[in-house]
Nucleic acid binder design. Structure first.
Lengths: 258, 258
DNA sequence: TCCGGTCGGTGCGGTATGGCACATAAGAAA
DNA sequence: TTTCTTATGTGCCATACCGCACCGACCGGA
């Protein structure tokens, strides 16, 4: 197997499964193309599929009773969406929004839960990811509360950049404002500042990162912390894979989802 | 059994275990008295015990690289602390701080994980709780970002009040300020406003709730949402128990941890 | 009873952001 | 090209909160 499916998955979570576990799992997955702006779930919706990004990424967005929204997490090829399924729940309290278009593996909820029940390894993997998510969301809470917009925006751009292989990002100020929970004019100001410093370049819904190192300077520590959180998990999860760079927590460095 | 231990547990999670599961679990627990201000774990610490509050409560606090802190969740008799253990992790990224003194059951990490591995019912229970936690933390993130201090403080007081059976709360402005992530002077202002409205009364580290309904008015919707989140879980978890009041989501009402 | 420490009240200026509103510009469609 | 739509730039005022600083009030211990 592996040759009978379109292309071998590069989702980092699934990749770390031993061949014996991976094969039957993939047999129940299908490859789908996620499109930009696609809503996989609204708060309260039933979850039909667990989704493992191959080369796309998805935002998890909390919604308050008032309708105010805030992105609390992001899942790219290092993760998955559909966490409640792992916990035996069928509904999502978070909105799931496709932010980066591209292929993903998906598996029906029922099938996913079957596999979970049968494979302790798969379940362990999901648990480790869940632990990351928990820590990451907690951190996001504090970050959104304490850090200035410009730094948070830099962080967000870096995280997104990591998940899109350096392509230009397809997003408007309006959209960014809803992710970061500020008004659009605030984004314009922050973006202008970053652009003036030569860190990014943007025009009508397209942002390109021009100077990663500079952006890292401009971002809050949370970016580095996030990288560490994921690195730690990926190291635990795939000891087989040699993770060349990035191992020490202190110094700033980019996190390459590769 | 149950008569051989000091008193029957009233932790709502454990209570919902069937007798057959509860008995061996409790046999490995010990009752301990949590004291106010006790630090169960600092970020990064190993977790020695899972703790199930009987009549106390514990805050979970996120810490940023800068040292800034923000409370992201609270566990009373409706919950537990030591969630990472459920996920196979041994360390806590969050600080765990005892806020309400009183008895709790605790079980060593190893023993807890043993029970988890053997009892699918226990594990299911923990998963449901974990799901609640995830949703609750996500909501807290948005709440801390969007809502005004006074409303957040009202919410916090209500949540704490629910977990202390109407006793007066032992907390200083200084302390509250670190929970809510604002400076102390801000708490003084908000507290003064609430007191002027006759909702609370305070003096040197002691706060009493004078008018619950009024406080609910003053709090953000997040309080009601929180109650709903927990109610939903507890209903799922203990169908046996007749949960008399509180079932509909819309209207504001207090949540009685009883 | 006095002292020292903790806790709470208050003031002042600074700033990041909100709300609102409108002007401009760049693409897309016609 | 012209027109329309969407995206961005900007201005103005309001305000919630920060940082700092200091004072006064209460409480417990000596």
């Amino acid at each position: 197997m592996g040759s009978t499916i379109p292309f071998s998955p590069t989702n980092r979570l699934l990749d770390s499964l031993p061949e014996k576990e991976k094969e039957p799992f993939l047999a129940d997955c299908e490859t789908v193309e996620m499109t930009f702006g696609q809503l996989l779930a609204e708060p309260g919706d039933n979850i039909s599929y667990a989704v493992f990004p191959l080369d796309c990424f998805i935002s998890l967005i909390a919604t308050l009773a008032s309708g105010d929204q805030l992105e609390v997490s992001m899942a790219g090829k290092e993760g998955m969406v559909g966490i409640p399924l792992v916990l035996g729940a069928q509904t999502s309290a978070l909105q799931m929004l496709v932010q980066g278009a591209g292929p993903a593996l998906r598996i029906s909820s029922a099938s996913f839960q079957n596999h979970l029940a049968r494979s302790p390894i798969l379940e362990g993997l999901m648990k480790r990811y869940l632990n990351v998510l928990l820590n990451q969301i907690s951190q996001s809470a504090a970050c959104a509360h304490y850090h200035a917009l410009e730094a948070r925006m830099a962080r967000w751009l870096l995280m997104t950049h990591d998940r899109t292989h350096g392509e230009q990002l397809h997003l408007t100020h309006e959209f960014l404002s809803s992710m970061l929970g500020v008004r659009r004019a605030g984004i314009t100001l922050a973006a202008t500042a970053l652009q003036r410093r030569g860190l990014i370049n943007y025009q009508r819904g397209r942002i390109t990162v021009q100077n990663r190192a500079g952006l890292e300077e401009a971002s809050c520590q949370c970016y580095a912390t996030d990288c560490d959180i994921y690195d730690e998990m990926l190291e635990q999860v795939s000891r087989r894979t040699s993770i060349s760079e990035s191992s020490h927590a202190q110094d700033k460095r980019s996190f390459h989802f590769g």
